[in-house]
Structures are given as structure tokens and as C-alpha cells.
């Protein structure tokens, strides 16, 4: 405890020098991203981090980031890493925020304890361990928030890419575009069935004109959707099957027997309308 305090007071006493040196590091050529952050903002972040670091060092006997006293430092670094991940900083640039503090601090320790090699080594080791763990923490948080961004975008894409549209009273359609994987096909299936209930539709059209390939798994999902719709009391039509897809399906041994298929969306709509009692005809 005693020793810890002395380091804290040493850091506090020399904080102007350290901050100046640290700033030099941060703003040195090739490191400062002027395109992503303003100098004032960066200086504020450095100042906040420094203050919370000193406070935590003064409070906690052990340097264990999971301790309560380190919470402010952790949440500060979490905020920083998250915002940097969003802004487009690289992971190294983000970690550098902490690592660039090493040089000024080590310099200070070296100058202070140069006549006491044992103490020098001990303090260097302790501070090195601390800064490493803080740097790693930023990297971890950075990666986690990137993953979070990817996950959210995937979800948004799933939602966006499967709009169910109402064609006419009792007829809904879902135009599928792009490659279908299992997760997406499942979302389509659930959305379509929900929409059948919401619109009291008796005919549902799945148009796969925009789907480049259909493998066995996707074909199975389509067949399951048709069966589920049938159990609910709606007829499902698959339209827009391109010649290549028809060929692959036969080669794969997937049969769409018992399922109404139409070559084009227009044909499917015409068929659907006739199922619910309408006819398309040309005006005189």
C-alpha cells in the first residue's frame, strides 16, 4: 500500500511532463487520425483517462481490472474503444491510446530509480503489466463492439431483404433476391406465414427470380414453407424458377410435386387471382 501510494504521488508530481510526452506520442506523425478525431477531443480523453487511472491506482492495493476500484477506468476505456470501433479506427490505433503512455512513464521510473536496480525492475514490471492489461482490454472491447455491429447488420439485412407485399385482397407475395442460406430462408418462411395470417391471404407467392442458385437445403425449406402454409389453409405458389435452377433441382433429385409452380411472377399473380375469383382482362 505504502509503495503504491509513492508511485501514485510520483506520477501525480510529474503529471505535466508525462502528459506532455504522452501527447507528443499521440500526435506524432502517422499515429494521429486527424480525419477521425479532433485534437481537443483526444486531449480530453487523455486527461479523463489519466485522472481515473491515478484515482484507481491510489484506491486499489492490487492491480486487478475486475476490482470495483477499476470500474471507472474500465467504463472509460469501454466507451473509448466502442466509439473508435464505430468511427473506423484500426485495433492497433485503438490500443495505442494506452500503449503510447509506456514511453513517458517508463522514462520517469528509470530516471527516479536509476540507483536502485531492484526497485527499478519491480516498478517497471508492475507498470508494464498494468498498461498491457489495459491495452488488451481496449482491444477486446474493440473487437466485441465490432462483432456487435456485424451481428446487428446481419439482423437488419435479414429483415430488410424479405419484404412481404400484398398483391391483392387475399394474395401476398415475397420476392426473394440474392443467395439464400438456411437462416434467411427460415426468416422468410416465418415472415410469410405471419403475413398470411395478418392479411387473411389464401394465396401466397414466393418469387425466386432473383435467386441465383437453389441447393437441396434451400429447396427443402421452400417445400416446408409450402407445407406449413397448406396446414394453415393457404396455397403457396413458387414462381420465377429459372431454367438452370429447374435443371439443378432435377439433378439433385428435389421434386416440387404437389406444389404449384409458375415460370414468371406475372403467371403466378394471374393464377392467384383466378383462385380467389378474379380475372385479368383487357379493356375494350
Amino acid at each position: 500500500m505504502e509503495k503504491q501510494k509513492s508511485i501514485v504521488s510520483l506520477l501525480k508530481a510529474k503529471q505535466d511532463t508525462i502528459l506532455q510526452e504522452w501527447e507528443k506520442e499521440q500526435f506524432s506523425a502517422g499515429k494521429f487520425r486527424a480525419d477521425l478525431i479532433s485534437p481537443d477531443e483526444l486531449k480530453q480523453q487523455m486527461r479523463d483517462f489519466w485522472d481515473s487511472l491515478l484515482k484507481a491506482l491510489g484506491q486499489e492495493e492490487r492491480v486487478d481490472l475486475s476490482d470495483e476500484g477499476w470500474k471507472p477506468v474500465r467504463s472509460l476505456l469501454t466507451e473509448l474503444s466502442k466509439s473508435r470501433a464505430k468511427l473506423g479506427f484500426t485495433p492497433s490505433e485503438t490500443a495505442l491510446f494506452v500503449f503510447s503512455l509506456k514511453k513517458p512513464i517508463f522514462q520517469l521510473i528509470q530516471d527516479t530509480f536509476q540507483n536502485d536496480p531492484a526497485r527499478l525492475q519491480k516498478e517497471l514490471w508492475d507498470l508494464n503489466t498494468l498498461l498491457d492489461s489495459l491495452g488488451l482490454f481496449t482491444t477486446e472491447t474493440y473487437i466485441r463492439s465490432k462483432e456487435e455491429i456485424i451481428r446487428r447488420q446481419q439482423e437488419e439485412m435479414l429483415e430488410l431483404s424479405t419484404p412481404v407485399v400484398k398483391i391483392w385482397e387475399q394474395i401476398v407475395a415475397v420476392p426473394l433476391i440474392g443467395t439464400l442460406d438456411s437462416a434467411r430462408t427460415q426468416t422468410v418462411m416465418e415472415n410469410l406465414l405471419q403475413e398470411i395470417v395478418a392479411a387473411s391471404a389464401t394465396v401466397a407467392i414466393i418469387d425466386i427470380t432473383g435467386v441465383p442458385t437453389v441447393d437441396t437445403l434451400v429447396a427443402q425449406h421452400l417445400i416446408k414453407t409450402v407445407s406449413a402454409a397448406r396446414l394453415m389453409g393457404a396455397e403457396c405458389i413458387i414462381s420465377g424458377i429459372r431454367p438452370q435452377i429447374a435443371q439443378t433441382m432435377i439433378h439433385l433429385g428435389v421434386s416440387f410435386q404437389d406444389i404449384t409452380t409458375k415460370a414468371t411472377l406475372a403467371e403466378a399473380i394471374k393464377y392467384g387471382l383466378s383462385q380467389v375469383g378474379y380475372r385479368i382482362s383487357k379493356m375494350e
Binding site: 418462411m189 416465418e190 406465414l193 398470411i196 395470417v197 387473411s200 391471404a201 389464401t202 416446408k224 407445407s227 406449413a228 402454409a229 397448406r230 396446414l231 394453415m232 389453409g233 393457404a234
Partner: peptide, 20 residues
């Protein structure tokens, strides 16, 4: 329920269905 039944392998052959 419909999705689960299909996955289970049930298709209610010979039963007519309607939405409501």
C-alpha cells in the same frame, strides 16, 4: 404450430384447412 408440425413430419393428409 404449422412450422413445427412440418418439421415433426406431420401433414394431416385428408384434412381440409382454412385460415379462419
Amino acid at each position: 404450430v404449422a412450422i413445427t408440425m412440418v418439421e415433426l413430419g406431420l401433414s394431416l393428409p385428408g384434412v381440409r384447412t382454412a385460415l379462419n
